[in-house]
């Protein structure tokens, strides 16, 4: 025990020193102890020694630990505000009543569409249109070109049975080589295709049914029409 500690023991305020350093003395006792400190050199020295050590630890805490408690990033926990009509509608459909109503409407529309398509598929026009190629608009103008050939005669539409044999379109095997080549050229040439699209703007003429009479059904009607065009070239 040092000389200073012995003096502190003598003055009988040992138990109050720590409480005073950490500000845990009751108010009345604190005032009395402050009076004692003013008179007692040993106690005031001890208090200053303890306070300086405590301050050093507090300083370490403030410098090293306090910055760790500051949030380095924030997490937004609330719902993000949604802006716009679409999000408002989307929010509306989150409610079960509206969601069920929308689902029913969609289902009803799907069923109606199914029956509508089913009933119209029995009509022959629709059936034939299903057989039509995927590019009818690009093909039909070639028909109008063919139609211009017999302009002076203005031939009536010939029934299938009355048609002369030379007008019958040859089958794929019977086609001349030139026609096949022309067909290939027609298929591969984009520019020709573009021209056909351009002529699509002209008023369409009705295509006689018997033009297709003898031609075997192919996947692409444009082939047949192009073949006819090739025949015209050969003539």
């Amino acid at each position: 025990m040092t000389h200073n500690e012995a003096k502190i023991q003598e003055c009988g305020h040992t138990g109050q020193i720590l409480d005073f350093v950490y500000d845990e003395l009751p108010v009345g006792v604190k005032g009395a102890f402050e009076h004692h400190l003013a008179a007692c050199e040993a106690c005031s020295g001890e208090v200053s020694s303890l306070v300086s050590t405590s301050v050093a630890v507090k300083e370490w805490r403030a410098e090293a630990f306090e910055p760790l408690l500051k949030p380095r990033f924030s997490i937004q926990t609330g719902r993000r505000p949604k802006i716009g009509v679409f999000s408002t509608i989307l929010d509306m459909f989150r409610q079960p009543v509206y969601a069920v109503a929308a689902a029913t409407l969609l289902l009803g529309s799907a069923i109606g569409l199914y029956f509508l398509l089913g009933s119209s598929s029995s009509q022959p026009q629709v059936a034939r249109s299903v057989d039509m190629p995927a590019v009818p608009a690009a093909v039909t103008p070639t028909v109008s070109v063919i139609e211009q050939e017999p302009a002076e005669e203005a031939k009536p539409m010939i029934a299938k049975d009355e048609r002369p044999a030379e007008n019958v379109a040859p089958t794929r095997a019977e086609r001349p080589e030139g026609a096949r080549q022309a067909r290939l050229v027609r298929k591969s040439s984009d520019s020709a295709h573009d021209r056909a699209v351009a002529t699509n703007a002209l008023p369409q003429k009705a295509v006689p049914e018997d033009l297709f009479g003898e031609v075997p059904e192919t996947r692409d009607r444009s082939l047949r029409l192009t073949d006819l065009f090739a025949e015209g070239d050969e003539d």
């Binding site: 845990e24 630890v57 507090k58 300083e59 090293a64």
Partner: peptide
């Protein structure tokens, strides 16, 4: 200076260190 304090606190016996840490870091009452 702070490094010295850290080393000094770390060198205290555990029963003393836990008390001073509770007082200075957690600011608990006696």
């Amino acid at each position: 200076r702070l490094k010295l304090v850290r080393q000094a606190v770390g060198a205290l016996p555990s029963e003393l260190r836990e008390v001073i840490v509770m007082k200075e870091f957690e600011e608990m009452t006696f």
